[in-house]
Every structure is written in C-alpha cells, then in structure tokens.
C-alpha cells in the first residue's frame, strides 16, 4: 500500500464489566483501511463486529464498557485518547455510521428534514435555511422520491428502505472519509437490499470514501467488499482480499462458515451447521478460541492462542489466526 491508510486499528481491545469483572468483548483487533476501500467485517452475532465499529466511533457506553488497549489512528490522531468533545466533532463529520435497524434508528418526533439538516448545523455551522437546502440536496442524492415535499414528514411516514436511505443521507451529509455500515441491509427485504447496496457503492465512489461494512451475509459481502475480515469470538481469525478469501478459506472457521451457506443449486436440503457453540465471554478458552469446535485441533491449540500470521503460499495480504494452517510455526508443531 503506497498511500497511508485512512484508518488504522492496532491491538484494539474493548472490555465490558460483567458482575464487577472486566471481560474483553473484542481482543487484539488490527487492520488498515485504505482510501476508497471497502473492508467487510463478517462473523456470527455476538462475535464483536459491532463492538469494533462502536469502539472506532467512541460510542462504547461508558457505564459498563471501555476501550482498554490499542490504537485507532485517524488523520494523525489516536481516537481513544481524544476528549469527548473532540471525538464528537469527528463523529458524523469525518467518520459516520449507519445502523442495522432503520425502523428504530430515526427519531420518531423529529422531521427527517430536521434530522438530516442537524448534522450540517453542528458540523458546518450552517444556518437553518442553508442546512435545509443542503439536506434536500443530499436526500435527492440518496434518491428519496420528491424529497422536497417530504422534508417535513416524520420517519413513520417512510418505508424501511426509505428510512435507511434517510440514514445514509444523514451519514453522508458531511462527506465523511470513513463510513461504518453496521448491517445496513439486514432488516430490509431482498430487492430493497440490492437497491441500497448499489446506492452505497455509488456514493462511496462519488465521495471517495472508505467503508467498513459489517455483515453476516457472505453473499452481500462478496458483491460489495474489497477485503474481508472474518471475526470469531472477539478476534479477527482471517483477513484477505475478497476473492482470495472465497477461493482459499484458510482458517477452519472461515471454511466452515462458507460451507454452511445454503445453496439453491444443490438438491440436498440439509443445512451444514458448525458443531458446538461460541464460548461465552466470561469463559473464553485458554488457547485458540475456535479450538473446542475445530476438526484440525492439535495439542498446541489448547495451550496458546495463535497470532494472526501470513498464510503460506499467498502474499502478506492474506493472514489467518491458526497454528495449523498459517505462519511458520504451524507445520513444526
């Protein structure tokens, strides 16, 4: 990568307090996000995808959570070190986020015109009139039909897909450098999903934005991502360019995940599931977190957690956290 990364996360560990003890919900997360790149974070519910995004946004609830370790470098600054108000100025302006639930993520008592314009008023110091004019422009760009007449409508007057467009408009109003999209299409039906994905890709291109796209839908990821990071139990277990990941899944979890996608072109109607369960946050295994469910388990796997290391036979861009299949030590053990 010649260009410096727009966002670089290194050794990020975010902890939550459960019954008086701190437990890491995500551990040692590291990745770099290049300009214009889309990085997908995939994994099952509770694996720490959203926590990673909320940590970047500085939105981990203070009462019970904290970013315990690691750096999040953005525009030359380490975000976890910033004061609340400095972080607030970055949120919604330089880094924006859209959420999974369009039905509940908009304020029901404020008009959508107000909610979009508000971002511009706080970050661009625009007066109400000017902010409203720009809000209209951005609502047009996300293709809200007859946006001018709908500025004073309330969220409940919009369908789910339209609300997600409003969310996107709010997130993009200040043309952020990084967009965090947390399952933006999961709550939508399939045709609307496709429309929203196309819209996101289009706008990303237009603004030269980088995107972290969180999903558990591997089909969606295959169409939108440049690179994919697979997360399991709070760790990135494999990261690779999208084609490479689908062609050569290396971590046994990635492999199992890909195998479990139901396919319409096969007659078998049995779903392939991964045996066992994700360990609870308070009882993480000593060694590799996937070891209890892994078919390739070796003695070392239960003793120590493997580092994220390059996969033999591919460039440094493909890395996996596996004693058996990645790094130099695996073969020896």
């Amino acid at each position: 990568m010649v260009e410096p990364a727009v966002l670089s996360v290194d050794g990020l560990t975010t902890e939550f307090r459960i019954a008086g003890k701190w437990h890491a919900a995500v551990r040692d997360i590291g990745f770099e996000l290049a300009r214009n790149e889309t990085l997908a974070l995939v994994g099952e519910s509770g694996c720490g995808k959203s926590i990673t995004a909320l940590s970047i946004m500085g939105l981990i609830p203070k009462a019970a959570g904290r970013v315990a370790k690691g750096r999040i470098l953005f525009e030359g600054r380490n975000l976890p070190e910033l004061a609340d108000d400095e972080m607030r100025k970055i949120r919604g302006d330089r880094i924006a986020m859209i959420f999974q639930e369009p039905m509940t993520s908009l304020n029901p008592v404020l008009t959508i015109g107000f909610q979009v314009a508000e971002v511009l008023r706080y970050h661009r110091d625009l007066g109400p009139g000017e902010a409203r004019a720009q809000a209209l422009d951005i609502l047009d760009q996300v293709k809200i039909p007859s946006a001018r007449d709908r500025l004073d409508d309330y969220p409940h007057q919009f369908s789910g897909g339209m609300r997600q467009r409003v969310m996107i408009a709010m997130a993009l109003a200040c043309q952020p450098r990084v967009l965090l999209a947390d399952e933006p299409t999961t709550a939508l039906d399939v045709t609307i999903q496709a429309q929203v994905l196309v819209l996101l890709a289009e706008l990303k291109q237009r603004y030269g934005m980088s995107m972290i796209f969180i999903s558990h839908n591997l089909g969606v990821v295959a169409t939108i991502a440049d690179r994919v990071a697979v997360m399991y139990a709070g760790e990135i277990v494999e990261i690779a360019p999208v084609g490479e990941l689908f062609d050569r899944p290396t971590h046994p979890y990635t492999e199992a995940l890909l195998r479990s996608i139901p396919r319409v072109d096969r007659t078998s109607d049995a779903l392939v599931a991964i045996p066992g369960q994700v360990p609870p946050i308070s009882r993480m295994p000593q060694g590799c977190r996937y070891a209890p469910r892994c078919g390739l388990k070796q003695p070392i796997c239960e003793r120590a957690g493997p580092p994220l290391e390059p996969v033999p036979g591919s460039g440094a861009t493909h890395r996996a956290r596996c004693w058996v299949r990645a790094g130099g030590t695996g073969a020896a053990a």
């Binding site: 919604g92 993520s105 709010m170």
Partner: peptide
C-alpha cells in the same frame, strides 16, 4: 437506551441537545 439516541450521538450531536431535543 433507544436506537435513535445512539444515532444522535453517532451524528455528533452535543450531549445537551441529545437530552433536550432528542
């Protein structure tokens, strides 16, 4: 605890405005 309050924070709305307006 509602999602739209998280949205307001994600938009960079100052804490006071989140309380009184949102």
């Amino acid at each position: 605890g509602e999602d739209y309050i998280r949205t307001a924070h994600a938009k960079g709305v100052p804490a006071l405005a989140v309380v009184w307006r949102h």
